[in-house]
Amino acid sequence: MSRARGRRYDKEPKLNMKKVIAVILAIIVIIMFVIIIKNIVTGDGENSRISSLSYFASFNDNKWGVIDSNRKRCNKSII
């Protein structure tokens, strides 16, 4: 007759999900840091100029409006 001595003596090994999730998160964080450091060091032409959105009054065809500095939208008056 065998006596049960707790989980570590079970014949079938069980996956510790908490440790698995922790390892995956750690890998993700490391990857994020690598990407951030890479961007800082190399400087992507698209993103290296840090410039928050700015707004400017516009006047054209006798109409007033506002334009912003977002490259994707700056050709249109947003009002």
Binding site: F56, A57, S58, F59, N60, I67, S69, R71, C74, N75
Partner: peptide, 17 residues
């Protein structure tokens, strides 16, 4: 700013085309 240029009177501070 894009294809908008600053107006002649800088006191009015607007961009136009």
């Amino acid at each position: 700013i894009g294809n908008w240029h600053l107006g002649k009177d800088i006191n009015t501070n607007y961009y136009n085309k």
